[in-house]
Design a binder for these strands. Structure first.
Lengths: 148, 148
DNA sequence: AGAGTTATATCAAACTTCGATGTAAATCGT
DNA sequence: ACGATTTACATCGAAGTTTGATATAACTCT
């Protein structure tokens, strides 16, 4: 289908990402944490303190489910809730040091696994891979704009 | 930290992938399908007919949960179960045409979303992205070896 | 053939998610 | 500044999911 070599085969790229993710996402988490939990921790880690309602937008959970998930995470000491000084109805959620620790340690595990894969690449492939960090960050940034 | 420009910052790359995935994974699925369901459909699509036990290895579910999930998917017409001719205890699972349709249509949605992002890239960045498909497939293949 | 193992099913208990609805705080229109 | 509306989160009970323990039947090995 491509008219010349550099043409971007988007469906092929999508498949490649999907396939790699099937491997990349699955970590044998030591503590048994659900997908929902991990997603909330990831979002809070990257976004910083935010409201329950703001989380409803990114997580694929309805508000009552989030209320109860966050209550549980608070009991477990992974998340703190404090009143929003700007709005008496709202609550600001953030990660505790222990919550941060989980996100960071999963990140470290992924980095280590990636390292083991990269060992098997050629010199040239490794050099090529180095450029993708910028590119992926660029795409993520664009996604944030396009969606928002 | 990098000693020269082409050095591979693995932690940075991991973060970039994690960040992009947070966007890429989340599709507002039309039918309300759980993460577990989607993962099973994806695995069956790529791997072809397989046993329940084989699925237990890739999905992060225990066998009883898979038995009941698969029973539900069979009721909904997304998966078929037939006895394994080689082993009377075992069951071979595969996708129905409708199950295949769901996987393909989610793939198509992702491709379309990716297309909207890529529009915003420069000519040069698009060319760079084209090489990423090969490289990701290569990494996935290596992962299959390293794990297996 | 009998002992051990493997593939899946069943069960009840624990947990998650949902839709509907409640309560209190903020905002809007007059 | 008042009441009406809207927004943020909590609560509730019902429906759905996941789990560990255990059952059953089919394979394997000697």
């Amino acid at each position: 289908m491509a008219s010349h070599p550099d043409d971007l085969d988007l469906a092929g790229l999508t498949s490649a990402i999907e396939g790699f993710n099937a491997y990349f996402i699955r970590l044998p988490s030591v503590r048994r944490l659900s997908f929902s939990t991990l997603s909330v921790l990831h979002t809070l880690h990257h976004h910083g303190p935010m409201r329950l309602t703001a989380l409803t937008a990114t997580e694929q959970l309805k508000q009552p489910a989030l209320t109860s998930l966050v209550a549980k995470l608070e009991r477990e000491g992974l998340v703190t809730r404090r009143p929003d000084p700007r709005d008496g109805r709202a609550v600001l959620l953030s990660l505790t040091p222990e919550g941060e620790h989980i996100v960071r340690s999963r990140h470290a595990d992924r980095t280590a696994r990636l390292a083991r894969l990269v060992e098997h690449l050629s010199e040239e492939e490794r050099a090529q891979l180095a450029g993708y960090t910028r590119l992926l960050n660029r795409l993520t940034e664009i996604a944030a704009h396009v969606e928002g």
